[in-house]
Design a protein around this nucleic acid. Structure first.
Length: 272
DNA sequence: CAGAATACCTGCGGGC
DNA sequence: TGCCCGCAGGTATTCT
């Protein structure tokens, strides 16, 4: 569910509460996620201090002296901080307690999320080692997108959602970025002109930055489960608006399925 | 090899 | 009210 802006918002929201905090106990209520939660963390991480929190793509990384806890929220995962003990409900998988009484709770109804432990450099973890550049980094520029898309037949939308090409862009922001850049989502990636690549790069960065800003203003309170780090709403031009008028030209927005994902676009603004 | 389809889950809204 | 269907913000794995 969460795309890069949502994960970034979660990171910024929980970091002040967790940085340099020492773990006192970990309760794993329900270990079944995409992969089982390694029960070894219950022993390894007690009395260990979180030395840093960061994000790579949609992965959250909690660094300890002994290794890194890798957290992915999947489609429906949530993380929030509790000030007091609240009994776990059905989809509450893990509670990580800290010395000062706070608790980090991981909840995930659909269980596509993951909590993994690595004692190596997390960059070398199999899930992270093949990831493409961060969309907001300088590395993701026109030349990069142009060069990597050459001779590829996949739809441009599929390309920009591929984490080996570029991390962090999911269904909503791919859809919005393509509209912003006036690129038809089905354009074969290899057919993108350099100019289109330039527009797309600018649009992706713009759309993500705007969403991060919106998340930051919408979700201030990560404590106590109130003001949940849920999925905040930003104004969307096309996603979820099939059949409604284009905000630019008032044509009727159309929908498609690309790679089993719903895609909305303006047939007039976004032509192949 | 690339690209496409499938699999993993629960919850919700709509149609009947 | 209840049942069935399709759909949901992700991505590893399997297939063709």
């Amino acid at each position: 569910m969460p795309e890069l802006p949502e994960v970034e918002t979660v990171l910024v929201g929980i970091k002040p509460y967790l940085l340099n905090q020492k773990i006192s106990r970990i309760d794993i209520h329900f270990p079944k996620l995409r992969w089982p939660i390694p029960t070894i963390i219950k022993k390894i991480l007690v009395n260990q201090t979180i030395k840093n929190l960061s994000r790579r793509g949609k992965y959250l990384l909690l660094d300890f002296d002994k290794g890194t806890l890798i957290i992915h929220l999947g489609m429906s995962g949530r993380l929030y901080i509790l000030n007091k003990i609240i009994p776990p409900l059905k989809h509450d998988h893990v509670d990580i307690f800290f010395n000062k009484g706070k608790c980090l709770r991981f909840t995930d109804p659909r269980r596509f999320g993951a909590i993994l432990w690595t004692e190596s450099n997390s960059e070398e973890h199999v899930l992270l080692s093949h990831l493409g550049p961060e969309p907001l980094s300088a590395e993701f520029d026109t030349d990069y997108l142009y060069n990597i898309s050459r001779h590829k037949k996949v739809a441009t939308k599929t390309l920009i959602m591929n984490s080996k090409i570029l991390v962090g862009v999911g269904n909503i922001y791919a859809t919005e970025s393509l509209f912003d850049a006036k690129v038809h989502p089905l354009t074969p990636a290899g057919k993108l002109t350099k100019g289109q690549c330039a527009h797309l790069v600018v649009s992706i960065k713009k759309v993500l930055k705007k969403a991060i800003k919106a998340g930051g203003t919408t979700l201030k309170d990560f404590v106590n489960g109130e003001g949940n780090p849920g999925y905040f709403s930003i104004e969307l031009n096309v996603y979820g608006r099939a059949g409604e008028p284009c905000t630019r030209c008032h044509s009727t927005l159309k929908s498609l399925r690309i790679g089993q994902r719903s895609t909305v676009f303006c047939p007039k603004c976004q032509q192949k």
